[in-house]
């Protein structure tokens, strides 16, 4: 503790560099986090609230009032004339004239020029942006696709990669080192490069427009094998030998001893895998072309193309897409940072 406080750079007093550093960080945080906050605030604005320019920071919407026999009407504040200062409900607008009533006395129509009244705004979070997504679009289906792909691909990734890592770290067989090198070499082949032939293979295997078309190519990751192998190398071989003395089968040694002991590394890989699959864009876009098989990023992309005017839905959808990742980040922030720092992968 003592060292943390004072050892760095050894300056003993708070000087201008400390102020500059904190200023930089505060401004940086504003740039890094501000846009996300703005997205969040915007996503609960009503359709009309989004069209306000310049935009308001908090979500506002025009107040409405129930007037007997006339229904729900928009509320206006009168600024000129004999009714100045009153809040009146608008029955209808005719050109530059507005017909209003006093909600307390709905029988009498009051005519005013439109510039004599301003809308009464009130704070209102338009949660219906979110609920309407599910009722007006097959949004649940898209969320399900994303969740299914993320969960299944992550489980399979952990299983397949840990099996390979187990063999590569705990068995001696001829060709083992070559296999390891071959797997490392695949780090050099990013998916972008093999887009065309992978599409051929996926279509020949009948995987297009199926979540499995996204899952299978993603399950074997060189990063995952490497990360897990390095971790398993640190587990003592005596553990395996002791288990063999206890007549455990090799498969049992793998899932009862090695896997539980590797849980820190598995957790890191699981977090990575969830991020990768949840956020993946280019490959799913190639392999999934029907909208009912879309994942969230694909749906977002097509949505922004088709419905540029419907920002209130698009923003809500964007928020729903970043929410799970944000939740994971808040809970596991420390582990993610450590995992990345130690593995040097993303």
């Amino acid at each position: 503790m003592a060292n943390l406080l004072t050892a760095r750079r050894g300056r003993l007093r708070w000087d201008w560099t400390d102020w500059a550093a904190h200023l930089y960080l505060v401004l940086g945080t504003l740039v890094m986090f501000g846009p996300v906050l703005w997205l969040g605030l915007s996503s609960v604005k009503s359709e009309s609230g989004l069209q306000a320019y310049p935009p308001t920071i908090l979500p506002y919407e025009q107040a409405r009032i129930d007037v007997p026999e006339r229904g729900t009407l928009k509320l206006f504040h009168v600024t000129q004339g004999e009714h100045a200062g009153q809040d009146l409900a608008e029955v209808r607008r005719l050109g530059l004239q507005s017909q209003l009533v006093d909600p307390a006395n709905p029988g009498t129509l009051i005519r005013l020029p439109i510039e004599a009244r301003t809308p009464v705004m009130r704070l209102h979070a338009a949660w219906e942006n979110f609920t309407d997504l599910f009722s007006q679009f097959s949004f649940a289906r898209i969320v399900w696709n994303s969740v299914f792909i993320t969960v299944v691909a992550t489980v399979l990734t952990l299983l397949v990669n840990s099996m390979a890592a187990f063999a590569l770290s705990k068995y001696k067989f001829s060709g083992r080192d070559q296999v390891f090198l071959l797997m490392l070499a695949t780090l050099m082949i990013p998916p972008t490069i093999v887009l065309v032939p992978n599409y051929l293979i996926a279509s020949q295997l009948g995987l297009t427009n199926s979540p499995w078309g996204v899952i299978w190519p993603a399950v074997a990751t060189p990063t995952g094998v490497f990360l897990l192998r390095q971790y398993m190398l640190t587990l003592p071989d005596e553990l395996l030998e002791a288990a063999r003395m206890d007549h455990a089968s090799e498969w049992r040694i793998y899932w009862r001893i090695i896997l539980p002991l590797s849980s820190p590394a598995l957790a890191v890989l699981a977090i990575f895998s969830v991020m990768w699959r949840w956020n993946e864009f280019l490959w799913p876009m190639v392999v999934l072309s029907r909208s009912e098989s879309f994942t969230l990023p694909l749906a977002l992309n097509s949505f922004q193309g088709e419905l540029t005017t419907q920002w209130h839905f698009l923003l809500a959808m964007t928020v729903l897409t970043l929410l799970p990742v944000t939740a994971i980040f808040v809970v596991l922030q420390r582990h993610i940072a450590q995992g990345i720092a130690s593995a040097g992968v993303k």
Binding site: G28, T29, M32, F33, V36, M275, W278, N279, F281, L296, P297, L300, N301, T318, T321, L322, V325, T326, I328, F329, Q333, I336, A337, K346
Partner: peptide, 13 residues
């Protein structure tokens, strides 16, 4: 954490 957070977001987001 604030500087790292955008790393986790989907490129589309």
């Amino acid at each position: 954490a604030a500087f790292f957070y955008p790393v986790l977001l989907s490129p589309v987001v």
